[in-house]
Nucleic acid binder design. Structure first.
Ligand code: FES
Ligand code: FES
Lengths: 144, 144
DNA sequence: CATTAATCGGACAAAAATGTCCTTTATTTG
DNA sequence: CAAATAAAGGACATTTTTGTCCGATTAATG
């Protein structure tokens, strides 16, 4: 569904949001530890998110990553997915034709578009804040 | 969503079904031509489908691939996906945790499971015959 | 101002997915 | 039986994704 990079990216963003709720700024090392991901690879992904203004980074001692409270509401999952995986899950054909096209649809088009539309709606409507709150009360987990 | 191999596998199976409706047995070369896929790679995928009894292969002159009319109803998409991509789309966690687990869910679990369940139902209920008939009447396409 | 701690960015490495080539095996046909 | 045809299967090549390493840059602190 999502690439590994995107999975790490979402988990990382949720963790940063959670910590930012407590006013804590977090380092790559801490993030990788807490979401159980490869450190250097995670750093690369965080750079992408930072360049796309999805998270905020601060260099130097006491530096790290954080997300402003308002941004946790504004940042929806689809923004993270788009920043990392591009728009292939939104425009791609389920059976691999060049692009999805209702004029010359593949045999699975109608059924595939239904699913994809649901997925897209879900991603567009789910905010980082929403995901972080489940974590906060111990209902959900970012690693096992 | 699906791997390239799986996409080719589904397109190939639909094409074989379509031709089998006319009593024609088709070669790898013809299949690859008609679904616009790499020949040798497609051959590998057809072997997998054949070993999983999803399509039937015949060696030698006049040989090729075919699917019995009954099997076109019996073979659902989920069987092809499972044969090629395994069950990761059925048991995997959307955020990449080891496996999806409602006891210790990731923050996206509930929403992800909804989508995945719809996808799973769709794949389990869609037969090869159904996909082939759309092609037959010129409503859908396997290449562009 | 020197040290230190942190991200940034580029080059590289490893693994997995995708794709190719060639030999073997089975089967039909002359 | 010999020749030709088509799938089967193994080895190899390429590309993409995933992951690592290290020097450069930025900023805080004594
Ligand atoms: S054309 Fe294949 S999903 Fe739309
Ligand atoms: S635990 Fe992540 S999707 Fe179920």
């Amino acid at each position: 569904m999502f690439s590994k990079a995107c999975e790490y990216g979402i988990r990382a963003a949720v963790y940063i949001a959670l910590q930012s709720l407590d006013g804590r700024r977090v380092s790559v090392n801490e993030i990788a530890e807490e979401i159980d991901s490869p450190i250097a690879f995670t750093a690369k992904i965080l750079q992408q998110l930072s360049r796309n203004n999805i998270i905020h980074s601060v260099k130097g001692p006491t530096g790290g990553f954080q997300i402003a409270r308002e941004d946790m509401d504004a940042v929806k999952l689809n923004m993270i997915v788009k920043a990392i995986d591009g728009d292939k899950i939104y425009v791609g054909c389920g059976l691999g034709l060049k692009e999805c096209n209702a004029q010359k649809p593949c045999p699975l088009h109608d059924k595939f578009v239904d699913i994809r539309t649901d997925l897209s709606k879900m991603l567009k409507s789910t905010s980082l804040f929403e995901l972080a709150t489940g974590l906060e009360v111990g209902l959900t987990y970012l690693k096992r």
